[in-house]
Design a protein around this nucleic acid. Structure first.
Length: 435
RNA sequence: GGAGAUAUGGCACAAUCUGGUACUGCAACGGACUCGAAAUCCGUCGAGCCGCUUUUGGCGGUGUGCGGGUUCAAAUCCCGCUAUCUCCUCCA
């Protein structure tokens, strides 16, 4: 949610910055009109209420002294009727203002490139391993190179067919070493983040509508969410929702900031509008595991924390020796709540493209305003905290990247060294019958 | 899932039957006393949100778990909801 006072006082600048996020000026104008209307109504009704309060005191006083108050009561009847009408008007205007404001995306930070889509994203840095024998970006692709889902099916560790049979398209079973590899990957990630100072959490994976509103998924993006039928609850699309809402409505002691959380959770997405896209493999599923990072910070430190959170995501890929690059998203490509976002994209050698594996955002006070998360500054004044979130990383996509980058010509897959302790010392994935 | 109870400031509680300025204590803050502190005494103390404003502040509105209703007026009466506790039932 944007600050109404800012929008009121800086409407020209706000219109410009919203335009960069794809919002038409008419939308802002409509909101400001309603806001103006609302404040006028408030002034009217409050004048009447002040009068009523005063009269009410007099009536009470008269009654206590056994005096007649019939006349005052009669007068107040009409005043109260007017108040009722105006109150209703105000409630309606409140709702409309809130509704419109809730649909406005966050404003982008100053250094974010302006553009209408991913074409305007800007690469920040590239990384690939230097050690001999580790995955490198090859100038020429060997012809035996397979896609991760081909490897997974050949090794018998990913079963998409039975996933579709039992659940539906875009669901799968991990089988045997596949399940163990997935588990190794997320245990490794959680251990790394814990070392970096994140508090590990296991969260609810069903949340209420208020929580979905707080982080900005609702009301605008309900179509992509798995709702629990008959209840105002939703299967989380990311652990960002329960992690960030942990402090909703609370004032955090300033000395506790910054606070850092991490959690593994399944993530559920309908992928509405992605029909026919990335239909094969681990890239786009209705349910996938993700290790998430969330931070609560003072405003002055949020951008430095954004950099370090991005480094925390990169660290995982570096330790796994997977090639990647980092891009800064343009105003047109960023998510609804973000003020600035870095995407980390891992190299997928079979398709020869970088694939998003992490998205790290600073939402500034956008989510905190929706959730009312505050702290007291040095002058004891309540201020909104800044919230950040990032994947650290998408687990399924990491498994996909490992399979493709670590595959050998004989069809086996070498297990990255850092994962071997999590796989009882196993060094390779080879085809093994298990049933 | 069934039955009962509870929800009031940072904390603990009163007022609810019988509608009329939300009591008191603790904590906190300011001051006095003191070399300083404790104790004591005096004073202040509804957080948040909203509106207006001449903006280190002032005025008003809202605010007794949440949402409605009745009334000139609701902590209080009526309806709905949520959470917590106790008992029963069920369960990994």
């Amino acid at each position: 949610m944007l600050d109404m006072k800012y929008l009121r006082k800086n409407s020209v600048e706000a219109a410009e910055r919203l335009k960069a996020r794809g919002v038409d000026k008419a939308q802002l104008d409509e909101l400001l009109d309603l806001d103006q209307n609302r404040r006028q109504t408030i002034q009217e009704v409050e004048t009447l209420k002040a009068a009523r309060n005063e009269a009410s005191d007099k009536i009470a006083y008269a009654k206590r002294n056994k005096q007649d108050a019939t006349q005052a009561i009669t007068e107040m009847q009409s005043v109260s009727a007017k108040i009722k009408v105006l109150d209703k008007q105000q409630t309606e205007l409140d709702l409309k203002v809130k509704e419109l404001a809730a649909h406005l995306p966050n404003l982008a930070a100053n250094d974010v490139p302006v553009g209408k889509d991913e074409e305007s994203n800007v690469e920040q840095r590239k990384w690939e391993p230097i050690t001999e024998g580790q995955p490198r970006i090859q100038k020429t692709k060997p012809e035996w190179l397979k896609a991760h889902y081909e490897i997974g099916e050949a090794l018998g560790i990913l079963d998409f067919e039975r996933g579709a049979k039992v659940s539906g398209a875009r669901f799968l079973y991990y089988v045997g070493d596949g399940a163990r590899l997935e588990r190794a990957v997320y245990n490794f990630m959680l251990d790394e983040h814990r070392t970096e100072g994140y508090t590990e959490m296991i969260t609810p994976i069903v949340v209420n509508d208020e929580a979905m509103f707080g982080t900005g998924q609702y009301p605008k993006f309900q179509d992509d969410a798995y709702r629990v039928e008959g209840l105002n609850q939703t299967y989380i699309p990311t652990a960002e929702v329960p992690l960030t809402n942990y402090y909703s409505g609370e004032t955090i002691p300033a000395e506790d900031l910054p606070i850092k959380f991490t959690a593994l959770s399944p993530s559920f997405r309908k992928e509405a509008g992605a029909a026919g896209k990335d239909t094969r493999g681990l890239i786009r599923l209705h349910q996938f595991n993700k290790v998430e990072m969330v931070k609560f910070t003072k405003p002055s430190q949020s951008y430095q924390e954004l950099e370090s959170m991005t480094k925390n995501a990169e660290n995982i890929l570096q330790k796994l020796a997977l090639p990647y690059h980092v891009i800064m998203l343009s105003t047109g490509d960023m998510g609804f709540s973000a003020a600035k976002t870095y995407d980390v994209e891992v190299w997928m050698p079979q398709q020869e493209v970088y694939r998003e594996i992490s998205s790290v955002s600073n939402t500034e006070d956008f989510q905190a305003r929706r959730m009312h998360i505050t702290y007291r500054d040095d002058n004891e004044q309540l201020q909104l905290v800044h919230t950040l979130n990032g994947s650290g990383l998408a687990v399924g996509r990491t498994v996909a990247a490992i399979l493709e980058n670590y595959q050998n010509e004989d069809g086996s897959v070498t297990i990255p060294e850092v994962l071997r302790p999590y796989m009882q010392g196993q060094e390779k994935l080879v085809a093994t019958p298990h049933h």
